Amino acid sequence: MGDMNEGVGRASGGRLRPPGPTTRRIPAEWVSSRPRAERARQLADVLRQRITAGAFPCGVLPDERLLGTQLGASRNAVREALGLLRDEGLITRRRGVGTTVTTSKYGHGLDRLAGLAETLNGHGTVTNEVRVAEVVTDPPPAITERLELPAGTAVLHLERLRRLDGRPLSLDTSHLPAEVGRGVLRGDLTGRDVFALIEETTGCLLGRAEVTVHAVTADPDTAALLEIPVGAAVFAIERLTRLSDGRPVDVESLRIRADRMALHTTLHRERPFLAG
């Protein structure tokens, strides 16, 4: 005869122990061994890439349920990912309106030597506020060294606040040899790229540039000029541009709003070396 209390355990001392809770089946797609924060971060990466690529041309994202279906994720994970993008300032979320892209990100290719106005042609009007334009007779040694000039050689110091459709996009600082810079000063610094002015002044095409990109936070002065919060993410680009004959002609330091610009390039893998 079977035990009347089958399925009911016995605690020490012979006392009956109540049965455990009934096991509930959870759909496999709702379960992940990865921490929830990690899943949210990865979903945010996917959504950020789609926003940058222009996947939502009207600027409005689908609701959480539809995004979850498209991305194979739970609604809670999607909600957390959208929260991360909202904290970045990339999107806004309002009841009755939904999730909208705050501002479009524009692509700036790193595999082509081009000025900002040239890069953003067709995306809006680029204007330049000239903040500094002066020939410096005693520049920092680090500048003359990079320009391969004798110490104490005069250079042009140029700083411009660049706007796209009236909104700040970047703060650009350049140092050029004075013999080139004086010709650049005669050009239209408010409406044209420095690269084009350099080529006109020298009669020589630009050849190549050495570029380093850093991720930094905005200091108070940069934040005020770019109209972003202090500590916001900024791309810091250091670039040394050379003429086609190899002469260094422009040492630049650029601070670009990371919420308005995405840097991209196309990389090619070289044929691997095979030992003979």
Results as ranks from 00 to 15, higher is better:
1 M>F: 07
8 V>G: 00
17 R>K: 09
21 P>L: 12
31 V>D: 01
37 A>K: 04
37 A>N: 11
51 I>K: 14
55 A>Q: 05
57 P>W: 09
58 C>D: 15
61 L>W: 07
61 L>S: 08
63 D>P: 12
64 E>I: 15
64 E>N: 15
68 G>P: 08
71 L>E: 08
74 S>F: 09
74 S>W: 07
77 A>Q: 06
89 G>T: 08
92 T>Q: 12
94 R>M: 08
96 G>T: 07
96 G>I: 05
99 T>C: 08
99 T>Q: 01
102 T>D: 12
106 Y>L: 15
110 L>V: 05
114 A>C: 10
123 H>E: 11
126 V>Q: 02
129 E>M: 06
130 V>T: 10
132 V>K: 12
133 A>K: 02
136 V>P: 01
143 I>N: 04
145 E>L: 06
149 L>A: 11
149 L>T: 09
150 P>R: 01
181 G>V: 00
183 G>R: 05
184 V>W: 03
185 L>Q: 13
188 D>G: 05
188 D>E: 12
188 D>H: 05
190 T>A: 14
194 V>A: 10
199 E>H: 02
208 R>E: 13
211 V>Y: 02
217 T>Y: 02
218 A>Q: 07
219 D>G: 11
223 A>K: 02
224 A>G: 11
224 A>R: 14
230 V>W: 05
233 A>Y: 12
233 A>N: 13
235 F>R: 00
238 E>G: 12
244 S>L: 11
250 D>T: 09
259 D>I: 07
259 D>L: 02
264 H>S: 09
